[in-house]
Amino acid sequence: MSQKQLFELNNVNKSFTKGKEEITIFNGLNMSIKEGEFLAIMGPSGSGKTTLLNLLGGVDRPTAGDILFRGSPINNLSEGQLSKWRAEHIGFIFQFYNLMPMLNAARNVELPLLLKKLSRSQRRNSVDTALKLVGLEARAGHQPSELSGGQQQRVAIARAIVSDPTFLLCDEPTGDLDRATAVEILEILQLLNREFGKTIVMVTHDPAAAEYASRCLHLDKGEFIEKDLAA
């Protein structure tokens, strides 16, 4: 496995202003994420896990400090450049799946491909491949409302990987699922990491879920306490 740095966070500050109050989430946060690793981020509610994920995904900007992606900063890209960067490099997986309710599974999976110059048949091939990978090729024509939570999350994973992104950002991907279904999802993520070399950053508060990762960081009051899970 390559040991090159995918992300480097240098002295990242992040604070929100809520009315007159200023809430500081991170104060001089440093971390790095290597290409090809499966990183779990754990921590109590309100510790800043989602905020960190937003920073890594170029969805939110740090108040101060640098976020380097493969050595170049992303925090000074324009909105348009960030959109492009996200489309090229990231697959997002959300706790509540965030599927478009009026599109069937295949159409949902196809969405990221609409940002690329691809023919209809190329798009269909990629969608088929992604749905097969998550074991849902038989449900391509189903609406999200006709699918179980676990199936919806698998569609969401197919959508996240269909355009072959560099890394996956998952915010509590099993937070809304029962244990058995959660295991299915985690096994798919592990497969994507091991067989397809996708770097994965997964936020979870579930220690059992974190065990599927190769490294686990504990976030508490904006600071990391590192534990290595890979035996």
Partner: peptide, 14 residues
């Protein structure tokens, strides 16, 4: 709003 934001996260333009 969530759908719009999700599309934006995926890379759709404003």
């Amino acid at each position: 709003a969530v759908e719009i934001a999700t599309l934006r996260a995926i890379g759709f333009r404003g």
